[in-house]
Computed example of a mutant assay.
Amino acid sequence: MDATKPVKVCPADGAGIAQAAQVIAAGGTVAVPTETVYGLAARADDDAAVAGIYRAKGRPDFNPLIVHVPDVTAGEVLALFDDRARALAGAFWPGALTMVLPLREGAGLAPAVSAGLPSVALRCPAHSVMQGLLKSCGLPLAAPSANRSGGVSPTTAGHVAASLGGRVDLILDGGETAQGIESTIVGLRDDETWALLRPGPITEAQIAAVLGQGQDVVTSTRIEAPGQLASHYAPGKPVRLGAMVAEADEFLIGFGAVAGDVTLSPSGDLAEAAARLYACLHASADAPQPRVAVAPVPDEGIGVAINDRLRRAAA
């Protein structure tokens, strides 16, 4: 993906959506309007496609990516819905509500989508273009905001083009988005409590009207993400960083020329390494070796974020 490539924009009509679905199926990225902001969509079941999101945005933030589905039925294939989740979906889906729910075993999502957590963030968008793309490609779509990391979220196709340029394979121009701020995120707890993880178009009061309030309500202004827990990334074994070869009792996570038992990226692609990080750490946890070694990863660009997580794993 080359930022110097011409920006490819097409109208968000039937032909444009069909073209976008072909790009998605092939593992590419498409900027698509939702009722909140433009999202940078890729198929959520493929590590390489998720790497394309990271590559376009400049670096991963390692927060769970929101997965978009066309309806509750598609959502229940990926996550475990309880009565509260169904009530929220009945009240606010399709719409600007994202729910963080337990990930269903065998859901088939790329590990990077859920950031290594046992949960998944799901949204059923109301925008006709995003709905059309979901139904046309028949795949769940990971779609963070379609802008360079740290930039302002885009509400027009022009914003996307200015921020991402040729880094995105296709931009669907559906005009200005209606709401212009990201979706509300609510987390449902095993102990029947809930947390407002990010405020958005759907208010806390509206959610409380469905779920109840008082002691069952836990509020927070921060998104729950693995970076908040220093031990979250640890595979449960000692981890040695900067390893060129493995010792006899080590499982080696490779990178580039260091092959390893598994590899973050055989070609040394940092975006691919970011997308595969959690899958490799899971593999090391399941391996018979009592210790883990990790090949050096350049501490530049996306590598800064990767090394931050690896240092937490080794702490």
Rank of each mutant, 00 (worst) to 15 (best):
V217C: 04
A208N: 09
V113G: 02
S183I: 09
W194Y: 15
P125M: 03
A205W: 00
A142K: 08
D173W: 04
M130Y: 15
G151W: 07
E192G: 04
V217Q: 12
P125I: 05
A209I: 01
S119L: 14
S163R: 12
A115R: 08
V160H: 02
L172E: 02
L103K: 14
R198K: 02
L139N: 12
L122D: 06
T203L: 03
A121N: 03
D216S: 01
R189I: 07
A146G: 05
I185K: 11
D191N: 12
V186I: 15
H159R: 08
A195C: 00
A161D: 06
W194F: 15
C124T: 11
V100Q: 09
L133I: 13
P125R: 14
R222L: 06
A112Y: 00
S119M: 10
A126G: 15
I185P: 14
S153F: 02
A195P: 06
T155A: 08
A161K: 05
A112M: 02
D173L: 06
C124S: 09
A107I: 15
S145M: 08
G200S: 04
S119P: 07
A96W: 10
A209V: 00
L196R: 07
T177N: 15
R222A: 08
S153Q: 09
L196Y: 05
V168E: 00
P118V: 04
Q179R: 15
L139G: 13
T193R: 08
T219L: 09
E105G: 11
G165L: 13
S153N: 14
A121V: 06
A162T: 06
E105T: 13
L101I: 04
P111I: 01
E182K: 13
G175V: 14
T184C: 02
E192C: 10
G175K: 14
A110G: 03
G214T: 04
L97I: 13
G108M: 01
V186H: 14
C137G: 02
A110V: 03
L109D: 04
V210W: 07
G158A: 15
E204S: 06
V113D: 03
E192S: 13
G150N: 03
I181F: 08
G132W: 11
V160T: 02
L117I: 06
T177L: 08
L133R: 07
L139C: 09
G108R: 06
A195D: 05
M99S: 05
L97K: 05
V120M: 12
G187A: 08
T193N: 09
M99Y: 06
G138A: 09
A209D: 05
A112P: 00
V186P: 10
T155E: 11
S153L: 06
H127T: 00
A121K: 02
S183K: 00
V168C: 01
A161T: 09
